[in-house]
Amino acid sequence: MAGGWAKDGAVQDQIDASVEDAVARAKNSMYQGESAEYCEECDAAIPERRRIAVPGVKLCIKCQVLMEKENKVEALFNRRGSKDSQLR
């Protein structure tokens, strides 16, 4: 049940859009291709077990953690919300 100017199913549409965005971000961050033997950032050797577990890996664990901290997405609320839902 939608109220105000929002159409029926607007809340579900917002949820679906948020999920689709999260899936797209996850797919874009997936590795592809052959794993590197040495880290692209620091030239440290990447352990064979990591190369097998994460196909296409290009960074050592230390550099991977640093990169993920820099690229962390903060989503505290749904930015796709309709104006009507934001006014409540």
Results as ranks from 00 to 15, higher is better:
Met1Ile: 05
Met1Gln: 08
Ala2Phe: 00
Gly3His: 09
Gly4Glu: 04
Gly4Trp: 03
Trp5Phe: 12
Ala6Leu: 06
Asp8Gln: 12
Ala10Tyr: 08
Gln12Trp: 06
Asp13Ala: 15
Gln14Pro: 00
Ala17Met: 10
Val19Ala: 07
Val19Ser: 05
Glu20Cys: 03
Glu20Lys: 15
Val23Pro: 00
Val23Glu: 09
Ala24Thr: 12
Arg25Lys: 11
Arg25Val: 03
Ala26Asp: 12
Lys27Arg: 11
Lys27Trp: 10
Lys27Ile: 05
Met30Ser: 13
Tyr31Thr: 09
Gln32Ser: 14
Gly33Thr: 04
Glu34Pro: 02
Glu34Asp: 14
Ser35Arg: 01
Ser35Trp: 02
Ser35Thr: 02
Glu37Gly: 13
Cys39Leu: 03
Glu41Val: 10
Glu41Met: 05
Asp43Trp: 07
Ala45Met: 06
Pro47Ile: 02
Glu48Ala: 15
Arg50Ala: 08
Arg50Gln: 10
Arg51Leu: 01
Ile52Gln: 14
Ile52Tyr: 07
Ala53Arg: 11
Val54Phe: 08
Val54Met: 09
Pro55Asp: 08
Leu59Ser: 00
Leu59Gln: 03
Cys60Thr: 02
Lys62Val: 09
Lys62Asp: 15
Cys63Gly: 02
Cys63Leu: 01
Gln64Arg: 06
Gln64Trp: 03
Val65Asn: 10
Glu70Cys: 04
Asn71Cys: 11
Asn71Trp: 05
Ala75Leu: 09
Leu76Phe: 15
Leu76Pro: 11
Phe77Lys: 07
Arg80Trp: 08
Arg80Pro: 02
Arg80Gln: 12
Gly81Ala: 15
Gly81Tyr: 05
Lys83Gln: 14
Lys83Met: 13
Asp84Cys: 12
Ser85Asn: 07
Gln86Ile: 12
Gln86Leu: 15
Leu87Tyr: 05
